[in-house]
Structure formats: C-alpha cells, structure tokens
C-alpha cells in the first residue's frame, strides 16, 4: 500500500503539467543566468514564479542575457504558444499514462484479492 502511494505520488508529481523547479526568491539575474552555459543565439528560458519567459541569448553590454521573443506563458492562463500539434499532444501523454496506470493498479489489486 505504501509502495502504491509512493509510486503514484511520484508519478503524479513528475507528470504534472505545471511541474517546474521551486522558485527561490526574486532574482534580477534570471535573464542573465539563463544564458550562463549557452552561447550567442542559443534558445533560453527563465521563470518568475510560475511564469515562463522564452527567448534567445543575445549580447548586452558584453554579457549574454535571455531576450524574450515569445509571449510570456502565464501560469494562470491557458498556454498560448505556437507549440506544434504533435508535441502538444505528447504533453498529454503523461496524464493519460497516470490515469491508465492507476486503473491498471486498481484492477490488478482487485484481481489479486481472494
């Protein structure tokens, strides 16, 4: 039972569409930090709270910073991105998988019981 709970909790956590790294305070460096390990013209992103800023690394004052060029993805709004349809569909697979998994687990437990 505990194993079930742990497994399902992990699965739900990892497959949640809103899963992002924890926000650790206000960071004015976020657009710059987003390009720390990248080179000019690389894609980049940074977050503020649960809002996602996606752009391209550009040079500003001799340093690289993430210049957003996609509409801000507000956590409180439906995803307005131009994400290609196949990827948009894939993003739903985890949720479908979890539901299917829960159903299978329930059926398996039911069938195991005397």
């Amino acid at each position: 039972m505990r194993l079930h709970t742990l497994t399902l909790t992990l699965a739900l956590l990892l497959t949640s569409p809103g899963f992002v790294g924890a926000h650790s305070g206000h960071s004015s460096r976020a657009p710059w930090d987003a390009c720390d390990e990248r080179v000019l013209s690389d894609g980049c992103s940074w977050t503020h709270g649960d809002d996602l800023y996606i752009g391209t690394c550009r040079g500003v004052g001799g340093d690289l910073m993430c210049v957003r060029n996609e509409p801000i993805r507000r956590a409180s709004e439906p995803n307005p991105t131009r994400e290609p349809l196949p990827w948009a569909l894939l993003s739903w697979i985890p949720g479908v998988g979890v539901i299917a998994g829960i159903s299978l687990a329930y059926l398996a437990r039911t069938s195991d019981e005397p």
Binding site: T7, A11, T15, L90, G97, L104, A105, A108, R109, D112
Partner: peptide
C-alpha cells in the same frame, strides 16, 4: 503482481515526462 505494476507505472511516467 503489484510491485511489477508499480515499476511499470513509474517507468511509463518517467518516460512520458522525459518525452514531454
């Protein structure tokens, strides 16, 4: 059967997460 199903579920979830 339950442990194998747990493993399957977690593996599927991780795989799907990676794909996403």
């Amino acid at each position: 059967k339950t442990p194998r199903l747990d493993t399957l579920i977690l593996t599927a979830a991780l795989g799907a997460f990676t794909l996403a």
